[in-house]
């Protein structure tokens, strides 16, 4: 029993960055923008969030407050991810550049951006590696919730995580509420499905695309920050995102563009990526490392045969809208 709970704990922790990436991309695709730059935006968010907390940590030294470091990390990560998405929006919405090419370029750019500044911080620090101190690390550790965390089993299962986990779940619920219950969510879905109809109904298609894509990028950035601050315990590790952004893109399809399903998907894929620690099958480690990607391929194959119109990609996704082309 204890081992299963340990495994679920680890799966949730490993799945959280995927969840952020998936949610950000769902929001983006709902506006009809297929932004393949999730990986890049996660790198940008990762390095910027880390840098914000790290530089604050250095300057405040002994007076460092965990809460302020957390706020810096969140703001830095969100802003950097949003900046990447803003570049993407400008290129595809305003200049009508090809969405696939722009997204791929953003991935390459973001990866370079992250590794360059990350390495720069590492080599300019005295020890040769950049790391936050224990105060900051603790702020990203498990939150002790009075009473709830003490309940046997349930406490460990549900109330033993760091605040980023709760934030990601909250984001999923918020997005679901936004899409399915609010007027703006409805308008956004119409923009992604049929921008010409939305335009005719008086919806500002360009504004919706910009805002949704930019906020989506910010959410992806938080996923990158999680990897650096939680998974890597506040130390900059070269190539730390390493493909998580791509899994998130596939998870969007797995989740059928639904935030609730994204919760399940990220837990499942988080589980796949930590399996080697919990299920020993006597196979080479590299095979374990392959599992999430093999899973991604299987998901893509299975979902490509699905016909339901309710659970398919927003129809205008991947094509730019140009009013005069009606």
């Amino acid at each position: 029993m204890g081992k299963i709970i340990d495994m679920i704990n680890a799966a949730v922790l490993a799945g959280t960055p995927l969840l952020f990436g998936t949610l950000g991309e769902i929001l983006t695709e709902k506006s009809g923008n297929l932004n393949l730059g999730v990986e890049g935006m996660m790198f940008m968010g990762g390095v910027s969030g880390f840098a914000a907390a790290y530089l604050y940590n250095i300057s405040a030294a002994q007076q460092t407050s965990g809460l302020i470091a957390v706020i810096f990390a969140i703001l830095g990560a969100f802003a950097a991810g949003a900046l990447g998405a803003l570049i993407y929006s400008f290129l595809t919405v305003t200049l009508r550049a090809n969405q696939n090419v722009t997204g791929l370029t953003l991935t390459i750019f973001g990866t370079g951006f992250g590794n360059f500044f990350g390495e720069h911080m590492a080599i300019s620090s005295p020890g040769g590696f950049a790391a936050v101190d224990n105060t900051v690390k603790a702020a990203f550790g498990a939150v002790d919730i009075p009473v709830l965390s003490k309940i046997p089993y349930i406490g460990k299962l549900l109330f033993s995580y760091n605040f980023m986990v709760y934030l990601s779940v909250f984001t999923a619920l918020l997005l679901a509420w936004f899409f399915y219950r609010t007027r703006y969510g409805l308008n956004l879905r119409a923009v992604g499905e049929n921008p010409a109809t939305a335009d005719a109904a008086g919806i500002n298609v360009t504004r919706y695309k910009y805002i949704a894509t930019t906020i989506g990028g910010g959410i992806c950035g938080l996923g990158g920050m999680y990897v650096v601050m939680v998974t890597c315990s506040g130390v900059w590790v070269h190539n730390s995102i390493s493909g998580l952004g791509w899994i998130a893109v596939a998870l969007v399809i797995f989740a059928a563009w639904d935030p609730y399903r994204a919760l399940i998907g990220s837990l499942l894929f988080g589980g796949l990526s930590i399996m080697r620690l919990y299920v020993q099958l006597g196979i080479p480690m590299q095979i374990y490392d392959m599992l999430p990607f093999v899973g991604t391929v299987i998901v893509l194959i299975l979902t490509s045969v699905r016909q339901s119109r309710q659970r398919s990609q927003p129809k205008s996704c991947g094509t730019n809208y140009f009013r005069e082309e009606r």
Partner: peptide
């Protein structure tokens, strides 16, 4: 027709109109 296929009739009718946040 200028309708969004994956939305309901009511959603299509109210599309783009101003009003409260929650429908």
């Amino acid at each position: 027709f200028k309708l969004v296929d994956v939305l309901t009739a009511a959603e299509n009718i109210v599309l783009g109109l101003p009003g409260s946040l929650r429908i």
